[in-house]
């Protein structure tokens, strides 16, 4: 039994303890979620801030040569 099936089984067994919305739960694999992200995964460290800098193209063409 995989992990998702285990969770479903537990939710079924403890139906009377869990809120009703557990009977409608959906389970997805996070890895599959992460694979949908690509560009956003590219984040850089700033020397000045503790923040991650998200790499992104500017909102307009900075040069128009072609």
């Amino acid at each position: 039994m995989n992990k998702a099936e285990q969770i479903r089984e537990l939710a079924r067994l403890h139906k009377d303890q869990l809120p009703l919305n557990f009977q409608f739960m959906e389970i997805i694999e996070l890895e599959a979620e992460r694979k949908k992200l690509t560009y956003t995964g590219k984040s850089l460290l700033s020397a000045r801030h503790p923040f991650h800098i998200q790499v992104k193209k500017p909102c307009k063409a900075l040069i128009r040569i072609l």
């Binding site: 850089l44 460290l45 700033s46 020397a47 000045r48 801030h49 800098i53 998200q54 790499v55 992104k56 193209k57 500017p58 900075l62 040069i63 040569i65």
Partner: peptide
């Protein structure tokens, strides 16, 4: 040379 800067986009020609 962009390491540690907050520059979020570099385009090269």
């Amino acid at each position: 040379r962009f390491d540690g800067t907050e520059i979020s986009s570099v385009e090269i020609v």
